[in-house]
Design a protein around this nucleic acid. Structure first.
Lengths: 229, 229
DNA sequence: CATAATAGTGTCGATAGGACACTAAGTGAC
DNA sequence: GTCACTTAGTGTCCTATCGACACTATTATG
């Protein structure tokens, strides 16, 4: 590592892929750009990293500024550094992905964005910059990680039915799962705890609600248990 | 993402964790710093990213400049951006890890480094900056990845014995494996090809040499096969 | 030719995973 | 209040995989 740094510096940004789940699909949060370049196009929320904040702080700040979302699960994804990925100048972006549950968080557009909205992963608009590539990488990472780490619960409400949980995995992994085998496996792992409540306002038999038992998960993990769906 | 960027910019570097394997341990390449800060201490090879090169290009350039290593397996690891990780100024570093086989590559120190040398992962010197943290992250990533992707072969010579291959996994995973089960599994996957050669210059029965059959691996992968050790 | 070192090989039992179909319970319409 | 509809909830069996486990074969060396 050289002592002096006389050369021009690449600019540094963060961009965030926020995933959520509705009844149908995996959704992603996009903002409509208010400024050039790509003015009026949809893009991932993000912005420049300040010199006095960490990368994760920058990601959380930009996310709140542009979408109102805060206090959510956030994890670093990858750093993209192609030379021409931004037409203005050299910009390197550190990307994060976030998981939120739609019931717990309201969304509103603000600074730098005309508008912020959820889009289905199956029906995406044209995206600014190389954000399509970033989104694809985030989706792959989520698909890979969700099977070995209990991060899927971040996409569910605090109390959820096993049907909702199965649906989550079906959507992310993009294949159907067998109900009996799924339940056998999940209940067998003993990391979800039955509550005394059941679903409300459904036009059929109501299902039992469960919650993720993080305490128990941590304890089992220390004993060598490995989560896997 | 803002249009203008009037604020001070963090500096951007790359750092590389180069792994290799000897008869005993997993080894890592370190350089002795020739400049302040941490002058005379051991550190990961790395340096500033230029505005006209991608991140991976920067990593390969620095690696060759500082250690003479080139044309090796390289993969992005993580981006570290703590505010005080460099005492001089704000520096964000994009880290990579590399895998090399000791027989195929010579090492020599050069620019910015007094010296470059291999160290056993079990006997590391004090490291500059937050390089200990980076190294730990690289080791974990390698441990996680080696079981599901055939990257371990990058650490072996082109032709290797099954004993060497088993040893590789034992060292990285840090546990003993059963010889018969290991062979059954590896040979059953049909991704290593027997050569007509055997070991030379050993004071006992010589073992058959195998090579990784990448063609076959790619073909099987397309058919849904999943590598796993 | 005896010794020492490592190569190379197969079985069996336990376990986990996948395929598979019916009954139970609650809602809403009549 | 009963019938139709919808989703909840449950168990078995088969197969494949994984892990535990010990001996013979081959070559080099003294």
């Amino acid at each position: 590592m050289a002592h002096a740094y006389e050369f021009a510096r690449p600019a540094l940004t963060v961009d965030i892929v926020v995933f959520a789940l509705d009844e149908e699909d995996l959704q992603v949060m996009l903002i409509e750009r208010d400024l050039k370049p790509f003015e009026g196009q949809w893009a991932l929320p993000g912005g420049f990293v300040r010199v006095d904040e960490t990368l994760e702080e920058a990601a959380r700040r930009e996310l709140e500024e542009e979408t109102g979302l805060k206090d959510i699960y956030l994890e670093q994804l990858y750093t993209f550094g192609d030379i021409k990925r931004d037409p203005r100048e050299r910009v390197v972006t550190v990307t994060y992905y976030a998981l939120v549950n739609l019931e717990g968080h309201d969304v509103q557009a603000s600074t730098d964005a005309r508008n912020a909205a959820w889009f289905s992963m199956n029906d995406l608009p044209k995206l600014a910059f190389d954000h399509k590539t970033i989104l694809r990488a985030a989706h792959e990472r989520l698909r890979g990680k969700v099977r070995y780490q209990p991060i899927g619960f971040e996409l569910l409400p605090e109390k959820f039915t096993l049907r909702q949980m199965q649906h989550l995995y079906e959507v992310i992994l993009d294949r159907e799962l067998d109900k009996r085998n799924f339940r056998k496996k999940v209940l067998g792992m003993e990391i979800v705890k039955e509550t005394k409540e059941i679903e409300k306002d459904v036009a059929h038999r109501a299902a039992r609600l469960y919650r993720f038992d993080k305490r128990r998960y941590d304890k089992l993990t220390k004993q060598g248990f490995n989560f896997e769906i």
